[in-house]
Design a protein around this nucleic acid. Structure first.
Lengths: 218, 218
DNA sequence: CGGGATCCGTTACGATACTG
DNA sequence: CAGTATCGTAACGGATCCCG
């Protein structure tokens, strides 16, 4: 945010918005919650201009929410800092509120599905049984995610899991419908999820957790 | 938000931002959480242009987050709908995150103090003892608020209380410092709060609740 | 005076083209 | 792949004016 359009108020809400209130900024953070991403990964946000993405990344780096790091083969990745990770609750509450509005047509398709990671993670985190343990792969419209629960900590990251106990295959549309309350857990689990791998019963537990995570909302 | 700059994504986070993501919108909602307000009350947001305020109010009304109502003496007031009230958690999480950044100089003073209502309400709501009962007045830099707890429900509204059990008098700066973690509860309660009214012990309890509400944060 | 509407200069955004 | 450069358009900020 350029100096001219900062609120510069003492109120902590305004101080937060001075960091994350610009157009696209919260969506960039959302995608980074799924793990490190390259510039071109983030450019799949439908409609963002490359110069804007550059500006937003620079601003987030200056404010200490993300860091730029050289990864293998000399490619650059952007990743959340500890501070940036603390935007998870903001994003979750936005998702909980946004679910109350019908998607307005025509809906643009997301460029990638990293978008689901934060919401899914926080929703499950809030209701998870601390005794539960899980190491699964979640494949959404062909895009793989590692879904793990360990010591009461839920993690959802972009990428394939190694030796998952179970693999859940599903689609984005039905997942959002469940989150919105437009589809029941039963209907979702029975019609839109395929299980494979050594521990299908773990898959049942995971599907149930995901469903409860969203239906548990006020 | 004009059609051209909506995200139009299926993701609920984007759907929320299409409603409340415009500049000023969340700050307008923040102030309305303190109770109904007139156009000119909201115009005290430092720097907002009157045509922008008109646009934002119109948009919020169209989306069902606020309602325009005729009050006494033919004046118009804007107030939150049930849907609009559900932005409280978004605003609280923004406040919790924003508190991690030092206020950047030069700080603009808020035009009014309605800004404190949501954050204070949600923070106290999250930790309040359901058995607690209270009907107090909170005076911040001369501006009065009704602070009540009834059946486990915390309410903080702009305006004077009638027959409060206790009146707490304090200032905005120290309150924000406590919320930011820059000042201890003890220091706040002992140096920056004056109590008056029939039940000073209720005031002690309230000051303690406010302090714990913020120090309880992760 | 409250509640806006109108006008206008400036800034940010969106699209596209281009480069190391 | 990871940006930079350019440029037309939309949004913002400030001021002024209007109307009951």
């Amino acid at each position: 945010m350029r100096e001219t359009r900062r609120y510069r108020l003492l109120c902590p809400i305004a101080r937060a918005l001075d960091r994350v209130g610009d157009r696209w900024t919260l969506l960039v953070l959302r995608d980074l919650h799924a793990g490190p991403a390259r510039f071109s990964d983030l450019q799949t946000l439908p409609g963002i201009a490359s110069n804007l993405l550059t500006n937003r990344l620079r601003q987030l780096e200056d404010d200490g929410l993300i860091r730029r790091r050289e990864a293998e083969y000399g490619t650059m990745v952007y990743e959340l800092t500890d501070l940036g990770r603390q935007t998870d609750n903001i994003l979750f509450e936005l998702a909980a509120f946004g679910a109350r509005f019908a998607p307005d047509e025509p809906v643009k398709r997301p460029g990638n599905l990293r978008t689901i990671a934060v919401t899914l993670k926080v929703a499950c985190q809030r209701i998870v049984d601390p005794a539960m343990r899980l190491h699964a792969e979640l494949v959404v419209d062909g895009e793989p995610f590692r879904f793990s629960i360990e010591a009461g900590e839920v993690a959802v990251e972009s990428g394939s899991a190694q030796d998952p106990e179970v693999t859940l295959t599903t689609s984005y549309g039905p997942m959002v419908a469940v989150a919105d309350g437009r589809m029941s857990l039963e209907s979702f689990a029975s019609k839109h999820v395929q299980l494979s791998g050594p521990s299908p019963e773990k898959g049942q537990a995971l599907a149930a957790l995901m469903g409860r995570a969203f239906s548990a909302r006020p």
